[in-house]
Design a protein around this nucleic acid. Structure first.
Lengths: 145, 145
DNA sequence: TAGGCCTGGTCTAGATTTTAGACCAGGAAG
DNA sequence: CTTCCTGGTCTAAAATCTAGACCAGGCCTA
């Protein structure tokens, strides 16, 4: 027993630990961490969904709304603006009869697809386990009163 | 020109497209998609941060709060409960003088670390590009009045 | 010429979510 | 007897999100 147990089995721990320690080490605190800002944005409830929709092909405003029926116009506009500001998508206006606007991923936006796909894969794979855990938790809670 | 261009360069597109299509194909709509529910949870602003903190080692309630100074007690309690319900973390109470509670990742929680680490790596790598894009966007907007 | 519909939004009011911080029980230390 | 520690709960106010009315402007129908 050296204090190092199964160290070689935990590369993700190592990676995150390293990052976290550099984030919280003296010079800047988590509250100001730019990576955290980016993660917050990705967690925006609509952001990832829009990126996934645009991953198929460029879409027009109303097309996105049809793909994601429960987003409000306001949030769609705002999320698209934020994504555009962050350089993740482009916005192109076409002078058609009723003017149309097309949104598409930039190279930066496309580079997000790989990590995002991994997360989606994880979510899909873990979904049954999570559902089981939820049922168990709820049942235990109910039986406790 | 067959209509298939650089198809082998876009595995993430393929993966996401496949998923998205199966989500939105007839039988269930995006609004009910369980994967989306999971992604929403991960985007909870605090969830990923807490998972990253617990990736180092198990932590006590107040320890987590010290690691993430700007989370309120209420949200910390709530997020921890949600994570526990989803089977991502365990909660163990020790009958010490002032009772202490330790939170740690389950196997399921640990399995999230890999995709999460990839996302964090992406965020870290992309952060300069995003910062540049933001400045450019803001400058363009300001110059337009 | 009026009316309706399409586009991509903006705006407002109400609902929901998050925050800050007071409060609590119970044991220890001074 | 007061103060501090633990891990929370609760409430009121602030921030955010939703639903849906509204808008300009061009087209179609009659």
């Amino acid at each position: 027993m050296t204090g190092l147990r199964a160290n070689n089995l935990r590369p993700a721990h190592e990676c995150l630990a390293q990052r976290f320690q550099s984030w919280s080490s003296g010079e800047f605190d988590l509250g100001l961490c730019p990576v955290r800002g980016i993660l917050d944005r990705l967690g925006d409830k609509w952001t990832t969904l829009i990126v996934i929709v645009l991953a198929q092909r460029p879409h027009r405003f109303s097309e996105i709304r049809r793909s994601i029926p429960d987003i409000s116009k306001r949030m769609l506009t705002q999320t698209l603006r934020d994504l555009e500001r962050d350089g993740m998508i482009t916005r192109r206006v076409f002078p058609t009869k009723p003017p149309s606007v097309e949104y598409g991923l930039t190279e930066l936006g496309e580079s997000l697809l790989e990590p995002l796909a991994q997360l989606v894969t994880w979510a899909e794979k873990s979904q049954p386990k999570i559902a089981t855990a939820r049922s168990a938790f709820d049942a235990a809670e109910a039986s406790r009163g």
